[in-house]
């Protein structure tokens, strides 16, 4: 049995226990997907469903995105509010997102059980396909640290997971999920020394070059809003981009409107984005959103010594104040 399967079995047993002890009545985790290199999020309502759960290098989705919806209050005040007792399978990035959402009152703390997984990082599908050079028709995480694939053309390849890691995993500020309620035993990644290495190219660009790169990437945008919809911390009932009164930005794919939407979303994410890269994975036209979110995250860390979701007891950035905060920047001059 591989170590990954150990963790998977421990997860299944833990979930069964949580149901048995009635600590949860709904568990969000990962199950097998219908495509190679993919899993999908599943919603379990009883212990006998726990064996659907999987844990491997393809568990890339961020399940925290479902929290605002699951804890939504009914439209009518006469309807009883019955929030779930939620168990959520979480990687480090997912746990940071959960904490951000708890801080923003999207769920009562006592209703959420964070199940921290031993995360060694997830495989980037694009990297696999590029290295395989052909459509991947089968993918298995075999012994620890290896991904074995078969291509459409009949070739077999074995890659080390460390060579396939998503940028989000390379940049992860945590060696393992933290501030969780239950920790599934197992080895997590560890190397947090490569944080922001991926930004070197972008940071070496001049302002004009950066603008050209931003313009080039965003010119692909088709306003499908996949980036916004998969983002755990984008949950406004009516997004500014969808408003008609006032119309903050046009609805179409004109470049100016597209940029305003993305700049707006990025700015709304400052101090809130947990850099899980769900937006980048979801984008159907391959926009390099992660470079922009990461740069914003680095600026926030540098300016405010703040990493969203890392220290849940910290006051949130940009939306907390003290009565004796300086007002010189307002009153001076």
């Amino acid at each position: 049995m591989t170590k990954m399967q150990d963790a998977q079995n421990r997860l299944r047993e833990t979930v069964k226990d949580l149901f048995a002890q009635q600590k949860v009545d709904l568990v969000v985790g990962f199950e097998a997907g219908s495509l190679p290199l993919r899993t999908r999020v599943c919603f379990l309502t009883s212990a006998d469903e726990a064996d659907r759960l999987v844990w491997n290098a393809f568990c890339t989705n961020n399940p925290a995105v479902y929290i605002p919806r699951l804890f939504q209050r009914p439209a009518s005040p006469r309807e009883e509010y019955k929030p779930p007792k939620l168990g959520i399978v979480a990687k480090a990035c997912d746990a940071r997102a959960v904490h951000k959402l708890l801080e923003e009152h999207q769920a009562p703390r006592e209703n959420v059980t964070i199940i921290g997984m031993p995360c060694r990082g997830m495989a980037c599908r694009d990297k696999v396909v590029i290295q395989a050079g052909d459509e991947v028709v089968e993918a298995v995480e075999s012994t620890e640290g290896a991904v074995e694939i078969k291509t459409r053309g009949g070739a077999s390849h074995r890659f080390e997971l460390q060579d396939l890691l998503q940028q989000a995993c390379l940049d992860c500020p945590q060696a393992a999920p933290e501030h969780v309620d239950v920790q599934i035993e197992g080895a997590s990644r560890r190397d947090t020394t490569r944080r922001y290495e991926g930004l070197k190219n972008f940071e070496a660009m001049s302002a004009d070059q950066r603008w050209e790169y931003f313009r080039h990437e965003l010119s692909k945008c088709i306003r499908c809003y996949a980036c916004r919809q998969v983002c755990p911390t984008c949950y406004c009932k009516t997004c500014f981009a969808d408003m008609a009164k006032p119309r903050w930005t046009g609805a179409g794919d004109g470049l100016s409107d597209v940029m305003f939407y993305h700049i707006g979303r990025l700015m709304h994410q400052a101090g809130r984005c947990v850099e899980c890269d769900a937006c980048t994975r979801a984008c159907p036209v391959g926009i390099d959103l992660k470079t922009f979110t990461r740069k914003l995250g680095k600026d926030v860390e540098r300016l405010f010594d703040y990493v969203p979701g890392l220290r849940p007891d910290e006051a949130p950035l940009l939306c907390a104040f003290e009565d004796d905060d300086t007002e010189e920047f307002v009153t001076d001059g």
Partner: peptide, 27 residues
């Protein structure tokens, strides 16, 4: 649909999907 995040990827990438709306805009 429990896991559907309500984006427009399937619709906008579909060769046959054709729903449209109108927006009045000031430029």
């Amino acid at each position: 649909a429990a896991r559907c995040v309500a984006c427009g990827v399937c619709t906008y990438l579909c060769p046959t999907c054709h729903c449209f709306g109108f927006a009045d805009e000031q430029v």
